[in-house]
Design a protein around this nucleic acid. Structure first.
Lengths: 210, 210
DNA sequence: TCGAAACATGAGTCAACATTCAACTTCAGG
DNA sequence: CCTGAAGTTGAATGTTGACTCATGTTTCGA
């Protein structure tokens, strides 16, 4: 996916045309991720971004229309990275329940490796709510599809896919926050195994009615 | 819980001493909740708050030291309201699994009635992270205690309480966001029932091994 | 080699608040 | 009906930082 497509229509005119331009854009994007991740949207400054990127203040506006636009670009970028990483990691799962456990493990690992971008996604709820909703909407749809498919294969018990999807997303998000961003005191595998057990068999000591 | 205790040591000197003062403080608090809830921390202005409260700009500083301080006061206030509401609602539950379902239902209802305060809590992650962590820490501890107790009563299968607690918190948070804040297209009871089934019996079509 | 398109630069502009403060009002107790 | 503590007022201050733009430099096709 190239820069032009990634940043949508608003960027058409600002897309770099030379190799030098592409390098500068990349540096600005990396710098912005670091700046936003460390200081949050409002405390981040364009100055800080260009400083980190080793570019002049004005250069920022050669590639972006506003502070919010880079932010949105980063949210969208994170969405793609995440989906790609997770889907690669759970691709080898023999069934949905295993996929669920591997997904949790992979997600926590991923968050640890991309704390900056992850904080940006979470902050998007307040800076670019539409981008935030879109981000999770995509996950919800994927989850729904996967749950339906697994149900029809008999891998899981039948039930409403939408509510389950949001519940699973919430679980992942908070596990990522607690064990990925806040503290790394437990291994992702350990956390995933613990939660997967609850997810597979439930909390009830008695099995479900037929 | 009175205003002095609620807003901690930092407010000692600013506590109102007369009835008139208490009324103004209350108006400012309500106005601040509305302003922060609607516009977010950074777009909210002290001017907007005092305007809504029908007070003068300077009066704000008679009761608060800074913009961030009211914000923190509101986060803490929301924590108390939430815990009180939920615990009242699940007080009558015969067992933990029922409590879990009732808790989800109550939480979604509560969020619907307090959208402003709920957005403030979520935004606290970026405005006052310590307050945000403290908020969820309290829930985690309560969850852990409840899960342990239920386990020892044989109401639920044994397992790691901490990971389960964070998973359950995440579920509730996202269900509250989706079905409480974003869209009210499903009844809280419906959502709670759907998720409680997954929580009780798991997704696996086969029961857990002994 | 030349010219134009791309790109880079950073001082300067400008509006938006958070916060302060000195003057003013209210009101209860004496 | 006086006095001082409590509360109210909003103009003024000061800072901050996004965004502009005129000027300069680099790249590259012809």
């Amino acid at each position: 996916m190239n820069a032009k497509a990634r940043h949508s229509a608003a960027m058409q005119d600002k897309a770099p045309r030379t190799e030098r331009g592409r390098r500068t854009l990349r540096r600005l994007l990396d710098a912005a991720a670091a700046e936003f991740g460390e200081r949050g949207f409002h405390d981040a400054s364009i100055n800080g971004i260009t400083q980190r990127a080793g570019a002049a203040l004005g250069s920022f506006y050669t590639y972006f229309d506003s502070k919010e636009e880079v932010f949105r670009a980063l949210v969208s970028h994170m969405g793609q990275l995440t989906r790609q990483f997770i889907s690669e990691r759970i691709g080898s799962a023999p069934d949905r329940l295993t996929a669920e456990r591997m997904g949790i493990e992979a997600f926590i690992e991923f968050v640890r490796e991309h704390k900056d971008l992850y904080r940006i996604v979470m902050e998007a709820q307040f800076v670019a709510e539409d981008a935030y909703r879109a981000y999770y909407q995509v996950f919800e749809e994927a989850y729904r599809r996967n749950l339906k498919a697994a149900e029809s294969r008999g891998e899981i018990r039948g039930g409403p896919a939408e509510e389950r999807a949001w519940a699973l997303i919430g679980m992942n998000v908070f596990l990522g926050l607690r064990y990925g961003v806040w503290e790394e005191d437990k291994s992702p595998a350990e956390v995933a195994a613990a939660v997967a057990d609850m997810l597979n068999f439930g909390l009830s000591p008695k099995p479900a009615e037929a």
